[in-house]
């Protein structure tokens, strides 16, 4: 009897999660899809001008903006993060690890608005000083995002490298390989699927990040012509206009959210088959 009650409680708890996802989906698609129809799918996805005042709702600049900024974050963050993960798993002296481990966790816990402040007060002037322009640019946003995805990539990489059975490492050493060669040629390849999962999780975070990007990206809804130009991402588009948007404008923003949602969904589907690095 007690068993059954508890089982119902657990089931209900699990269902809350599924119901939330379902509700969000319903809300997004019910409000967003008709708006896309009203604007016209082609004019919505491929339109290069976002001028709600004139009834122009083209989100191509924002789609490109999200892609550019994310690509920049990946280019900067993935090598740094993966190498740091390898370092922490196999090269780091224990004393340094006691410092580095909490530092990485802390990096993950910093609210994004604080990253944004750091961007405005340090990175924007630095980029302006080094390259000219306003300093609010794809480059600046990419650097901030790279910092923000580091903890995810580092911790997942480190964990998947630690999960590699020690006998690969020993086998390599016994063949006369150095520590470095053994780690990079025998251990890391076996952790590849886990590292990939970490990278994709990081990409998901970069695509979805809003506040820090809004603060440093400039937010012009124009297709940028270089990495020093300002850019508006999908997330920024929603948060900037949402405060005052009404009617079709408002629904166009929800449609923007649908696009973002599909992006994130696609990324998560991409990672799911290889997301179990320690399952051996």
């Amino acid at each position: 009897m007690k068993d059954k009650v508890m089982r119902a409680v657990f089931l209900a708890a699990a269902c809350v999660c599924i119901v939330c996802v379902a509700l969000i989906c319903v809300f997004l698609f019910v409000n967003g899809i008709p708006a896309i129809g009203e604007i016209g799918a082609l004019r919505f996805f491929l339109g290069t001008r976002w001028k709600p005042g004139q009834g122009l709702y083209g989100i191509a600049p924002m789609i490109l903006g999200s892609v550019y900024v994310t690509a920049g974050a990946v280019a900067l963050g993935v090598p740094t993060g993966v190498l740091t993960g390898i370092f922490m798993a196999r090269f780091c002296p224990a004393r340094l690890h006691r410092l580095l481990g909490p530092a990485v966790s802390l990096l993950a816990g910093i609210p994004s608005v604080i990253y944004g402040f750091f961007g405005i007060t340090v990175l924007v002037p630095a980029v302006r000083g080094l390259f000219g322009g306003s300093g609010k640019s794809i480059l600046t946003a990419s650097v901030i995002l790279a910092l923000m995805i580091l903890p995810t990539i580092i911790s997942v990489s480190e964990a998947s490298i630690r999960a590699v059975p020690v006998h690969y490492y020993e086998g390599s050493l016994a063949l006369g390989a150095t520590h470095e060669r053994s780690v990079f040629s025998a251990v890391v390849p076996d952790a590849r699927s886990g590292i990939t999962a970490g990278v994709v999780l990081g990409i998901g975070r970069a695509v979805g990040e809003t506040m820090a990007v809004v603060m440093v990206a400039g937010n012009q809804p124009i297709i940028p012509r270089g990495i020093l130009e300002g850019v508006r991402t999908l997330t920024a588009n929603i948060v900037i206009d949402m405060g005052y948007a009404t009617d079709l404008h408002r629904r166009a923003l929800i449609a923007t959210a649908v696009v973002l949602f599909v992006f994130i969904l696609a990324i998560n589907l991409l990672v799911s088959p290889g997301s179990r690095p320690a399952a051996k």
Partner: peptide, 20 residues
């Protein structure tokens, strides 16, 4: 040490071919 291990090979209790 790497030269030593090149001259003295080792085979382990549990077969440990690399995942390649």
């Amino acid at each position: 040490v790497t030269q030593l291990r090149k001259r003295v090979g080792m085979v382990f209790q549990k077969p440990n071919p690399f995942p390649m």
